[in-house]
Write a protein that binds this DNA or RNA. Sequence first.
RNA 1: GGGCGGUUGGCGCAGCCUGGUUAGCGCGCCACGUUGACAUCGUGGAGGUCACUGGUUCGAGUCCAGUACCGCCCACCA
Length: 879
Amino acid sequence: MKDIPPRYNPKDHEESIYSKWENSGLFHQETDSSKKPFTVAIPPPNITGILHMGHALNNTLQDILIRWKRMQGNASLWVPGTDHAGIATQNVVERSLREKGVTRQMLGREKFVDEVWKWREEYGNTIIMQLKRLGASCDWERTRFTMDKGLSEAVLEAFVRLYDKGLIYRGNYIINWCTRCQTALSDEEAPHKDVEGKLYYILYPFKESAEGVVVATTRPETMLGDVAVAVNPKDRRYKKLIGKKLILPIIGKEIEIIADDFVDKKFGTGAVKVTPAHDSNDFEMSKRHGLEPVKIMRPDGKMNENSVRFNGLDRFEARRLIVAELEEKKLLVKIEKHEHAVGHCYRCNTVIEPYLSLQWFVKMKPLAEPAIEAVKSGKIKFYPKRWTKVYLNWMENIKDWCISRQIWWGHRLPVYYCKKCDAVIVSKIKPDKCASCNSGDIYQDEDVLDTWFSSWLWPFSTLGWPEKTKDLEYFYPTSVLVTAPEILFFWVARMIMSGEEFIKEIPFSDVYIHGTVRDASGKKMSKSFGNVIDPLDIIDGFGADALRFSIVSITATGQDVFLSKDKFEIGRNFANKIWNASRFVLMNVGAQEHKSTRAQVKDLSIADRWILSRLNRTIEEATRALKNYRFNEAEGLIYDFFWHDFCDWYVEMVKPQITGERIGDGAQRAEEILIDVLENSLKLLHPFMPFVTEAIWQNIKERESIMVAVWPEADKHYIDKKIESDMEIAKDIIVNIRNIRSDMNIPHSKKIIVNLVPLKQGAGSVLADSMGYVKNLAQLDEIAIKDAGFKKPKSSLSAITENFNIFIPLEGVIDVEAEKARLAKKQDLLKQQLVFAERKLKDRNFMDHAPENVVKAEQEKAAKIREQIDRLGTTMKDL
RNA sequence: GGGCGGUUGGCGCAGCCUGGUUAGCGCGCCACGUUGACAUCGUGGAGGUCACUGGUUCGAGUCCAGUACCGCCCACCA
């Protein structure tokens, strides 16, 4: 047979195997009416992204499903692609321009966008290349990008349809404003973080007297934009003050005390300053009371002309100075420490400013209804199902979605305005003239859409929508979405809404949500923490299969994953084990043609029947686990079977037949079964460890790829509980004998004799078939089953199992007298230890003063020593 | 404020959905081993009152209720 090195070196195989796969076209999937489709749309990574462990986990799981289904004979399609990631990408390109001393404003919109495209040509496919190293079997011919022509078309179509339905509107509202990115953000893009802040109590004096009302605020600088002070109408303290006038400090403006139910009597002083342009509650209040908002800040976070002498100062600097000024004027009553949640930009972590601004929104309630129903009715299922509640809770409290962004990289809103009459025209293409006044002076809205406005169309836009394509017809809805919990609201929920809205059909029936990848201490892996384990380093050092296997092995359904580098040794070692077990099989039996016809069950040995039972049980259970997205369970079952059943036991059992004398026709059958079990194991392993299984497969069958081998089906009549438990009896005896050998230091080369006395009716005949294996694996000279009257021979050790009493005469095997002496010496030593321990336990001083647990430990120690002494005593008597 | 997850040998985790042999796995530890697949290995061993309290049950690591600690997510009390 071929020369197979005794170590699996991933570097020798991965690259060539992957390019073979790519060239073979096996990743590509066309519509095929003879097959059932299985479709997965990749969560498109950002073009700025580089592969991290989260991606590695996410894509490994998808690849497992895709490869498994492909082997099961489905038309298995994995649609890959990338996301243009508006703000993130714009930031990255701006940063690299800045290094050359260029700002985007210097370039102007058009040139800047050109720069971004150039950047994306150069770096935007990095992550795609990295996915290939992981072994991802995506249909690369179908790679999509959210800014592609087709997908952009889908975005415009979606916008126009929603607008025509009245589900998109424009308006002045308080939105989340990032002063660094200088754009509006959706609520999801401005996650709240707990911050240790301060609560400032400020006196607003009455118009007529130095007395006044104290208000509490966390953002004192916003007082410059105050238009009122509000109290709860039921608050006795303030009831009679309602309608009175106050003088707004610093500004000197007159403001009124108003009454509003929103105000919480118990918080702060029960009086709240009203700043409609910089707080959403205040904005709502101002609408109720007909108050005009006053903006005091510019988009860059600096104070504006309404801020009198603070004009031009940064908001936090202004805060500091205003507090100082209030203190000086004795208007600052007190400052309290105050922990509260503050929004932060999800891209740059800048503190979000609630900001009054004219933006575009999607009305979400009508879209949410069918999406809620889809999950409630069970049409869409979450795995694990606890996410259902999280999803429903969010959907039922959904708020309108701010979709306009004040950046340049992205899909420009298909909205046009007439310069002459201010008419708003929403259209996929620029209209020639205004529909209402016929003017040709028309310009397009400057804003672009939220990145997620294109991603939410992903499951169908990638299949050609809005065109009615064959692909869409055949592959949609997709089968399962595999994703991380972080983007449940951003993406998963919105895709369900868009699917229902635009296709009238759910985008996927299953949502598998895996855990977050964290480091060993539980922190999220991120570049800024410096705790990143680079998947490519792991692939270089351990191999892609090792990375895949290990990351799945430590992923219980939906649990977070705690990673450290040494975990990848599990996968590397296993890949090597697979390689070497295969090497053994191929070197010994590979030369002959594998016959698929199996011998009749009755002709098989007990070992053969046992391994076939275990194999078929494993096939059955692993397949069921995969069906339920229990990846680590499936993998664990296959691992245990392959390593602990096949390698540890079966291979060892048949070794003498294979490598030795080849007695009888058992050898031939064992060879057939060896290769059969090996092939089936490789198939089971392939979705998890594609490279090593393919490398071995190519050694067995030169042409065909294991990718398209048929996934094994469990043949139930091989599954035999009786055989399995019979084998356990034999294994138990072997382990007990080995145990005695180990205890007595009997070398492997020393053959011994064993007598078995059955303890149960029929135990002897059950064992009859496996006597040979016991003899062989326990290195025995002779093994005999004796009857119940059998007398324990002199100088022998015994062990009791459930079914047998095992006697091993040791006369002539070891020097009995010397062994007795050795054990006696050991016993003496223990006895001495016991004396010390007991002395301690009788020591008044110790017993009275030592802590309870120490005393207990001491007692346990003594008990253990006593037990050991007894055991040695029995052994010595037996000898 | 609401919701969710975790707590199992020295360490990292399965097992809980579907209650029932002796609670598994990997690492680490101890002893032995170069028996022609594999030292990225083999054989054997030590090590666990399954966080706590109560309940359901013939039987609970597994189901129910509560407590404690750790972690995550959501939320406009300024």
